[in-house]
Every structure is written in C-alpha cells, then in structure tokens.
C-alpha cells in the first residue's frame, strides 16, 4: 500500500469515524448534564424565548464593540468563509464528498479554489500574528498553537500540492489528505468544537438575560 493509498483509504476513513464519534461523545457528555433551574419569576412571562435570537445576533459584534473588535471580526470572517469555500467548492473535495455520500454539486474553477485557499491561509497567519503580538489579550495555551498548526497544515499542503511545490505530486497529495485526517481526528478534542458549542453557549446566555428583560 502506497502512502497515497493509505491516506485515501484507512487514514481518512478512521479519522472520519473518530470525528463523528468524538463529536457525539463530547456533545452528549456535556448536554446530558442536569440543567440548573432558574426559579425566579421572569420579567416578561413569555419573554425568555426572545433570548434565542442571541444565537444569530451575536454573529456580529454590537455597535458598542465594532471598533475595538474590527480586526478580529473581519479576519475571522474571512478565514471561516474562505475555509468553508475551500472545503465544499473545490472539485476534488466535492468528488471526495460524493464518494462518501453520493451527493455532489458543481465546483469552482481552479483559480478561485486557489484564491480561497490563499485567503484562508493568509487570514490564519494574520490571526496568529495578532495572537503572538498581544499575549496579554489572548491568554494563549499550547492547545491554541497546536490547533493553529493542525488547521494550517491542510491549507498549506493543499496549496503546495496544487502548485506542484515540495515533494512529488503523489506524496504532497498524500500529505494533504493525511493532514486533513489529522484535523478531523483532532477536531472533537479541541477548541474547534466551538463549531457546535456556539449555538448552545449563546442560547443559554441569551435566555438567562432575556429572563431579566435584558437583550444581549
């Protein structure tokens, strides 16, 4: 079995199983904990549900904080959108998803794929530069840096494979797939789980404050 065959076969499949099982384990393990009841009388008898809008409204900082958070918000949005584009719009990725699920959709031309990958990697670098530059603000842990590397690797190897830089193409492609497998397997055990937590975390706070008649 060549490295590429290993990457395309057992490696990526095992990582996807870890991804799915890990996400379920962590979500269920937390969400099955008891919920503390708030026995106080709500300000508005039917107002608590309004808190759920925080799940959506917190997608952008309020006017009070737009100036101070502009860099982080804009760069983080660039990163998330470009990365999402890279994952679901590049033709080989769609083919991989189709091989797993049977679902497929048209991809984008190569130059757009490269542009998206470049934007994703550049914004990721911009974020780490800021993290390194303002240690007091970011309270970084080893996990933050490990996560950064594991997220950056698939972007870097993907771009290198496409541009035929580094090792020969098959090796680069295998490394790219292996780095993606590493990302999948790592995801449920890292802060990348925020992809799920944000919904619950925002909703909880939104409801807790709506209970008191406060919109956050």
């Amino acid at each position: 079995m060549s490295l590429l065959e290993f990457a395309r076969g057992p490696a990526i499949h095992a990582s996807l199983i870890i991804l799915a099982a890990g996400i379920v384990m962590r979500l269920v393990g937390v969400l099955m904990l008891t919920r503390g009841a708030d026995l106080s009388r709500p300000r508005d008898a039917f107002g608590n549900f309004k808190g759920y809008r925080t799940v959506f409204s917190r997608a952008w900082p309020s006017d009070e904080f737009t100036t101070v958070t502009r860099y982080q918000t804009v760069v983080a949005y660039l990163f998330h959108l470009a990365t999402l584009g890279v994952v679901v719009l590049i033709v080989p990725h769609i083919e991989f998803i189709a091989s797993l699920t049977g679902l497929s959709w048209p991809g984008v031309p190569n130059w757009i794929g490269v542009a998206l990958g470049t934007i994703a990697l550049a914004s990721l670098i911009a974020l780490i530069m800021r993290r390194l530059g303002k240690p007091a603000v970011y309270n970084s842990t080893v996990g933050d840096y490990v996560t950064w590397v594991i997220v950056a690797l698939p972007l870097l190897t993907g771009l290198m494979a496409f541009a035929h830089v580094g090792f020969r193409y098959e090796t680069m492609l295998a490394l790219h797939i292996l780095s993606a497998a590493l990302l999948f397997a790592y995801m449920p055990f890292s802060k990348l789980m925020h992809a799920f937590w944000f919904v619950f975390s925002r909703a909880q706070s939104g409801v807790a404050y709506a209970h008191k008649g406060v919109r956050i």
Binding site: V30, T34, F65, Y138, S201
Partner: peptide
C-alpha cells in the same frame, strides 16, 4: 454547582481575546 450551562460555557472559550475589550 456545575450544570450543563456552566459546562457549555467552560467548553466554549476559544481564547479570541475579545472579552478584554469589555
């Protein structure tokens, strides 16, 4: 004292640093 609410909040922090501005 840790219920699901606290657990979710503790799990959710990504060290983005924005809280420092507030």
């Amino acid at each position: 004292e840790t219920n699901a609410d606290e657990a979710v909040w503790l799990e959710s922090c990504i060290h983005c640093g924005q809280c420092t501005t507030a």
